[in-house]
Design a protein around this nucleic acid. Structure first.
Length: 300
DNA sequence: GCTGCTATGGGTTTTACATCA
DNA sequence: CATGATGTAAAACCCATAGCA
């Protein structure tokens, strides 16, 4: 949906706890991205509020681990809606796409006894179990679109948190009359779309960095040429003072020029004093005019 | 034919658990 | 017996891509 594209909830800093290394590496770029906020990821920030509702969604946390274990032991609170289970039981056995055949015996044994997460195995057998498409018969892949209401609720949930723990998934699935697998897939695809959008933003940003650096390079080369031309002129040497000790001001990063020959503390260049310049101190203007990346930083 | 959305299957990473030295 | 190393299975996730509207 086009409307959705503008509402992807993009963020510069997606370094959430569970992100993999590859994601983190790409997202560090975002810290300087000009088109989006530099504040921490909304996903990260919103995780807490979601967790308030659903205990913990962090799969690294002990609470989550315990939850997962409780799923495997078949706690009733995570039981699927009966209608959904019925659908999956019908579809799961006959589908050629079922992953049941590929799992180990141990796993299969658990499927027969456990509720909750393990229903996903059956869900994978038939990708489509929406209540509205009973007439589909053999073919599971029809009427793929979710309703507007379903999409809106999923979108809202995604804004709250871009990943789901089993409880959240089941609750959403029940609320939307979807199978947990469908909710899971929707979130996966939604994360993929977000990442794609972020990649586009990063790409644009890098492009602009490249352009800025090219301009800067051009400018510096021109400056070098001018200086070389000046160097050829004998008058150039007459204005030069011998270099002595150079130190850097820690606050403004300007170069201090202490001239031991005459003891004066005047700046060595003809540049006027800037607003940050320390009057009365021997800080010369910083030879670096500006940093190219600064130009790209978001201006408030 | 193109586009966007949904679903699938394969591969990877993380975690828990069992076994062994 | 406690402990660390290692192997294995399961779960969750990402990614590429197929199928559908």
């Amino acid at each position: 949906m086009m409307v959705e594209k503008d509402n992807l909830g993009l963020s510069l800093s997606l370094n959430t706890v569970e992100n993999h290394q590859q994601q983190q590496s790409s997202l560090q770029l975002n810290l300087m991205s000009p088109s989006v906020s530099v504040s921490p990821s909304p996903f990260l920030a919103q995780r807490n509020s979601w967790n308030d509702l659903f205990a913990s969604s962090d799969r690294n946390s002990e609470m989550y681990k315990n939850e997962t274990r409780s799923f495997l032991k078949g706690i009733d609170v995570n039981r699927m809606p009966s209608s959904i289970i019925d659908c999956e039981e019908e579809a799961g056995v006959s589908s050629p796409n079922s992953t049941i055949s590929s799992v180990s015996g141990k796993r299969s044994e658990r499927e027969t006894t456990a509720n909750g997460e393990d229903n996903d195995l059956d869900e994978r057998a038939c990708s489509r179990g929406n209540n509205s498409d009973e007439e589909d018969g053999d073919n599971c892949r029809k009427k793929l679109r979710l309703s507007k209401d379903q999409s809106a609720i999923l979108e809202e949930s995604f804004k709250e948190h871009n990943t789901l723990n089993p409880k959240q998934k089941l609750a959403l699935a029940k609320q939307l009359s979807l199978r947990p697998r469908q909710v899971e897939v929707w979130f996966q695809n939604r994360r993929a779309r977000t990442k794609l959008k972020q990649t586009e933003v990063d790409c644009e940003y890098l492009k602009r960095c490249c352009e800025t650096l090219t301009d800067e390079n051009r400018r510096l080369q021109k400056e070098v040429q001018e200086l070389r031309a000046l160097k050829l002129s004998p008058q150039f040497y007459m204005h030069m003072t011998p270099p002595t000790t150079l130190t850097m001001c820690p606050s403004c990063e300007r170069v201090a020029v202490s001239q031991s020959s005459n003891g004066s503390a005047a700046p060595s260049t003809a540049a006027p004093l800037g607003p940050q310049q320390h009057r009365g101190l021997p800080w010369a203007p910083n030879p670096v005019h500006h940093r190219p990346f600064d130009l790209l930083r978001p201006r408030s």
